[in-house]
C-alpha cells in the first residue's frame, strides 16, 4: 500500500518567510555571548538557582525558623528516650515528624532542620568573605607582580611560595586556639567568624595570585596595552582600566570555585572544634557532634547533605561559568 508523502508543516514553506518572523541579527558583546552560553548550560543554571535559594535561606533564616517554631538552640528533651537510657530520639528515623521534618538531635533534642538552616549562615558568610579577601589580595599581588616584573615579581613570587608551603590546617588550629575570647574589640561568635575569615582568606590568596600574574604577563605585551602606553597612559590607568577588565573572567571563575573549597575548609575547622563555638550551629560542628552517634545516621545525614549540595552547586555553577567565559579551556 502506498500512501502519498505527507508534507510536514513548515517544510514546504518559503525559506525567506521563515526568516521574516525572527529578530534582526545584531552584534553582541562578549558578556552577552557568555550569558547566552551560560543560559544554554542547564546544569550550571540549576547550580545557580540552588545558590540563590541557599543565600535566600541564609538571609531569611530567622524568619524561616520563626515560622517552623523551633529555635536552633532550644532543647526538646521530651522527644528523647531518657528513660530507656539510649538517648536516641523517640519515634522512627531519628524522630522525623511534621513538627521536626529532619528529626531531632540525640541527647538534647534540638531541631535539626533549624540548625541546618542556621548553619548555612555561618558557612556561606565565612566562605564568601574569605573568598573576597583572597581575591582582593591575590588580584592586587598578581597584577602588580605580573605587570612590573623584575625584583617585584621575584619578591612576590617567593612570597607566594612561602604562603603555599604553609601548613595551613595546622596553623589555623593553632591560631584559633591561641586567640583569646576578647580580641580586636570583638568577642564571642563575631570574633570567631572574623578570625576564620581571616585565616581562610589570608592564606589562600597565592592560588589566585598566580593565575592573575600569569594572565597579566601574557596581557601586558598585547597591542592594546602597547597602544595605551604609547598614548602616554599612566601605569595605574593601564593596570586598572586596560588590564583588570580582561582579568575579570578568570578571577570570577576562580572565585566561584574557591567558595566551595572554603565552605569545606570551614566545615573541617568546625569539625575539629576550632570554628565557631557551641551552641551556635555550624554544619561542620553538627557533623562533629554526630560522630559519637554514628549508629543514628540521620544526625549526620542532614548537615552532610547540606554541605554536599552547597559545594556541588557552587562547583557546577563555577564550571559552567568557566565554559561560558572561556570556551577554549573546555
Amino acid at each position: 500500500m502506498t500512501t502519498p508523502l505527507e508534507v510536514e508543516p513548515g517544510r514546504g514553506e518559503d525559506p525567506e518567510a521563515v526568516l521574516q518572523g525572527m529578530p534582526k541579527i545584531e552584534g553582541r558583546s562578549l558578556g552577552q555571548i557568555a550569558w547566552m552560553r551560560l543560559k544554554r548550560d542547564k546544569v550550571a543554571i540549576a547550580g545557580f538557582v540552588v545558590i540563590v535559594l541557599l543565600i535566600l535561606m541564609a538571609v531569611l533564616a530567622p524568619l524561616i525558623v520563626k515560622a517552623i517554631g523551633h529555635p536552633p538552640n532550644d532543647f526538646n528533651q521530651d522527644l528523647i528516650d531518657t528513660q530507656g537510657g539510649t538517648l536516641a530520639p523517640l519515634g522512627k528515623f531519628g524522630g522525623m515528624s511534621w513538627e521536626h521534618p529532619f528529626g531531632v538531635e540525640p541527647v538534647n533534642g534540638r531541631d535539626i532542620m533549624s540548625r541546618v538552616i542556621y548553619g548555612s549562615r555561618i558557612s556561606l558568610l565565612i566562605a564568601f568573605f574569605a573568598t573576597l579577601l583572597s581575591v582582593a589580595i591575590g588580584t592586587t599581588m598578581g597584577i602588580v607582580s605580573g605587570f612590573f616584573g623584575g625584583w617585584v615579581d621575584a619578591f612576590i613570587s617567593r612570597l607566594m611560595d612561602v604562603f603555599l608551603a604553609f601548613p595551613l590546617l595546622v596553623f589555623a588550629i593553632a591560631l584559633a586556639g591561641v586567640i583569646p575570647d576578647d580580641a580586636f574589640g570583638l568577642q564571642g561568635d563575631s570574633l570567631r567568624i572574623v578570625l576564620l575569615i581571616f585565616i581562610i582568606g589570608f592564606f589562600n590568596w597565592p592560588y589566585i595570585g598566580r593565575i592573575v600574574r600569569g594572565q597579566t604577563i601574557s596581557l601586558r605585551e598585547r597591542e592594546f596595552v602597547d597602544a595605551a602606553r604609547s598614548l602616554g597612559a599612566r601605569r595605574p590607568y593601564i593596570l586598572f582600566t586596560e588590564l583588570l577588565p580582561n582579568l575579570i573572567a578568570p578571577i570570577l571563575v576562580y572565585a566561584t570555585l574557591l567558595i566551595p573549597t572554603n565552605i569545606l575548609f570551614e566545615a573541617a575547622l568546625s569539625f575539629l572544634g576550632v570554628g565557631v563555638r557551641a551552641p551556635t550551629a555550624t554544619w561542620g560542628g553538627m557533623l562533629s557532634d554526630a560522630v559519637t552517634f554514628y549508629t543514628m545516621p540521620h544526625f549526620m545525614l542532614w548537615p552532610g547533605l547540606a554541605i554536599f549540595i552547597t559545594v556541588l552547586a557552587f562547583n557546577l555553577f563555577g564550571d559552567g561559568l568557566r565554559d561560558a567565559l572561556d570556551p577554549r579551556s573546555r
Binding site: N73, D74, F75, V107, N108, G177, D181, G188, G273, R277, A278, P279
Partner: peptide, 24 residues
C-alpha cells in the same frame, strides 16, 4: 559540652544568660 549547653538552656528562662567557653 552537652552539660554546658544544658545549663544555658535551663537558666535562660530565669534570666541568667550563659556564654559557653570551651578549653582544652
Amino acid at each position: 559540652k552537652a552539660t554546658a549547653e544544658a545549663f544555658q538552656q535551663a537558666l535562660k528562662p530565669i534570666g541568667i544568660n550563659l556564654t559557653l567557653k570551651g578549653y582544652p
